[in-house]
């Protein structure tokens, strides 16, 4: 034990040092900045104000936020609609196949998502592969406008974020005890009843976890909107980025980013509450 004490101290110091230096301090800087004024020379002027937050709630920005959240919501719902049945099917496969199927879900991670977003741009551009194929097949007479639309941004977000939905759902489906499904059938419930009375409540933590993992990045992934969405389909992430890099308004960017963090906090708290409510099935006393 005495030999281990220095190691333990070292690890603790490292972790706390890391958290302090790279998490707490930067966040504090952002918080402080968000209450200051912009300055053309020094980026920030030491003068307390709430203007940045008031500006966030001005109709112009509120509209952008609403649109961004709307696209993120649609993205999340689509990921859920695709990911839920997929995760269920994978979990029902025989054990030998599962690692390969999950591997297929993870493979795209090996290519940077920015690169994949550009690849998508090439596919759906006016003279991109999809349009050329459709024209070639004679299905359309003139190219479809797919790039720089809301649909393109949502498609790009779904494409990049789908694995974040599938993985937690798969994990929870793997825990779903088949004897509970049998008990439900035994007691007279049909497939649909078993689904919404047993499967859905028991997989809810996975649904919420997956939705958070999709929803939060979906409001922040500015490059997807940059590449696929054009000027009109902005994400909150774009606003933050633009304020810091283009408009040079650090305080306002900080306020926007804090709003994002706050939204994330609220959602995480909702997740915590839901998990507490549902109570993870503990190892059965009977099987211990």
């Amino acid at each position: 034990m005495t030999l281990r004490a220095p190691f333990k101290t070292a690890v603790l110091v490292l972790i706390w040092g890391w958290m302090l230096l790279f998490v707490l301090v930067p966040n504090l800087l952002v918080i402080v900045t968000s209450f200051l004024r912009r300055d053309d020379v020094h980026f920030i002027r030491w003068e307390a104000t709430l203007d940045n937050y008031l500006r966030l709630f001005s109709p112009d920005y509120a509209a952008v936020f609403a649109h961004s959240f709307y696209m993120a919501l649609v993205t999340t719902v689509l990921c859920l609609l695709i990911g839920y049945p997929f995760a269920y099917l994978v979990s029902r496969y025989r054990a030998a196949m599962k690692p390969y199927l999950i591997f297929l879900v993870i493979v795209p991670f090996w290519t940077n998502s920015l690169v994949r977003t550009y690849a998508m741009k090439l596919l759906i551009a006016t003279n991109g592969l999809v349009n050329q194929a459709l024209l070639g097949l004679g299905l359309i007479d003139e190219p479809l406008r797919m790039l720089y639309t809301e649909g393109a941004v949502i498609a790009g977000l779904v494409y990049v974020l789908l694995p974040f939905m599938i993985l937690p759902l798969y994990a929870i489906f793997e825990q779903l005890r088949s004897d509970l499904l049998e008990a439900s059938a035994d007691l007279g419930a049909g497939r649909w009843q078993t689904f919404y009375r047993v499967v859905l409540p028991l997989t809810m933590p996975g649904i919420i976890a997956g939705s958070l993992l999709v929803l939060l990045p979906a409001v922040g992934m500015f490059y997807v909107a940059d590449v696929l969405g054009g000027a009109k389909n902005l994400l909150i992430g774009n606003i933050v980025k633009n304020q810091f890099l283009d408009a040079r308004d650090w305080p306002f960017g900080a306020a926007a980013s804090l709003l994002l963090t706050l939204a994330m906090g609220v959602l995480l708290y909702a997740y915590y509450l839901s998990v507490k409510l549902i109570r993870r099935p503990e190892t059965h006393a009977a099987l211990a």
Binding site: D179, L180, E182, A183, S184, P201, L202, R279
Partner: peptide, 9 residues
């Protein structure tokens, strides 16, 4: 059921 299979939720 042997495991009782009570619905935990």
């Amino acid at each position: 059921f042997q495991s009782y299979a009570l619905f935990p939720h």
